[in-house]
Design a protein around this nucleic acid. Structure first.
Lengths: 244, 244
DNA sequence: CGTACATTTGATTGAGTTCAAGCCCTGTGG
DNA sequence: CCACAGGGCTTGAACTCAATCAAATGTACG
């Protein structure tokens, strides 16, 4: 198939991103919604850039809580390790999304793993750097509160779904959200997820997810391929998810 | 059984709480951890008190997001309505806990129901009142951020458990958390939950929860009765929950 | 003392996991 | 250019946990 993969490694191997991409990420980050261009440039100066490739660990659970990341390009997978080794994927993160924790925010250790889903680049704030931003721009704290509150809301929705919906409904819901989330602007992008990762996201198994995807495919809602899923009709997906 | 029920209605029908109880709730609320007694008294003056009885709706999903509540006494049930009518219980709230949403925090409507679990009393902040508190005491925003972040963390843990643990493990985990949460200080309090509510909390059914409780009871970890559960050995409960 | 509601227990059914095997695509190295 | 190997996808069959359906028993409270 001769389709260009928008997540493919760039010429530089994908480990870096341009200053424009970095600034754009800051503009999209809800944290900084109230800042003007000058302030954004200043914040940009405080951050450090770091590239990553697929499967590269960017944050590892148990390490000190000393980094806050903002995704500039590419996608990251945020997952929680379990004793049995079956990681639960909590979210996929795209440009403008935030992850990581800081002592400032009440955490001592990172609890979750964050690894590269595609190649890309993140902006990294250390604790002192982010503290400086908070002190200088009080609006950032309020925006951060909103961001976390809306994440909490999404998490509650995920809990509700895990409680009442079937695997097929949950797969559909996750695909709809990923499409909305990672496919900003562009409709019907190939979402870079394997079926195993989807299983981790809906709390199920590879095989069951495969069967659910097969039904969705037969129904014409999606297309699938090796390592990707394309959502054809987002509305059809979210129709039967038992939402309140 | 001749045991006094600590959640029973008081002489006044439980709809009110004393000024001391209200101040105590504010002291326990993480939001106000940085405030001194003078500031607390001032905040206390801004809030309005409201009593509730069991099963009374305090916040109803879909209503305007114009109230932030802090529990002063008693317990509230925070649940999310589903299309099928099977409410998913997201948490039980005790003294010092916060719930509700405000436009300030990015919400337009309440998404969840909050109803009385026992009798008790809450402190209510309207949007302007809470805005005034935020303006006067900036530390409150930061504390609020910590609070919401820790809630998010708990929600992620719940997601992980729903994904990998059995119903019995989930029941045990929820009981452990409720005991820690609602039984502050006093060990082995009768937790005011029915098995149906527990089912809502672990995403299961009445009957399955009953069988799980029976096993835990046989094992000597809990005692149960009509409308309550007592945790005897909290450590024994959390042993097998498949935590990472 | 009866009524309403919570709990308990049994039988049945079904969605989903687990185990097992085969296929297909892609990248690699001869 | 072809063979091969690894990873991801697909499918089948047995099995398991939990939901569902159906009573019966207990218990608080008017």
């Amino acid at each position: 198939m001769a389709e260009r993969n928008p997540w493919a490694l760039g010429p530089s191997g994908g480990e870096h991103c341009s200053p424009e991409e970095r600034l754009d990420a800051l503009r999209r980050a809800p944290f900084f919604a109230d800042l003007d261009e000058g302030a954004l440039a200043e914040v940009h100066g405080i951050a450090r850039a770091r590239g990553f490739v697929p499967a590269e660990t960017v944050i590892s659970a148990g390490s000190p809580a000393d980094a806050l990341l903002i995704v500039a390009s590419g996608a990251l997978r945020w997952s929680r390790p379990t004793a049995e080794g079956k990681d639960v994927v909590l979210d996929l993160l795209g440009p403008g999304d935030v992850c990581g924790s800081l002592p400032l925010l009440g955490d001592a250790r990172q609890v979750d793993d964050v690894v590269g889903q595609t190649a890309g680049c993140v902006l990294v704030f250390g604790a002192p750097a982010f503290g400086a931003v908070l002190a200088r721009y009080p609006s950032v704290t309020r925006r951060a509160l909103e961001t976390v509150a809306s994440r909490l809301e999404e998490a509650h929705e995920a809990i509700r779904r895990l409680s009442v919906a079937t695997v097929e409904d949950r797969v559909a819901a996750v695909l709809g959200r990923l499409d909305l989330h990672l496919g900003r602007g562009a409709q019907g992008v190939r979402l870079p997820v394997t079926q195993e990762e989807l299983a981790g996201m809906v709390g199920s198994t590879l095989e069951t997810v495969n069967r659910a995807l097969a039904r969705l495919r037969r129904r014409g809602s999606i297309e699938t391929g090796r390592g990707w899923v394309r959502v054809l009709r987002r509305d059809a997906l979210t129709a039967g998810d038992g939402a309140g």
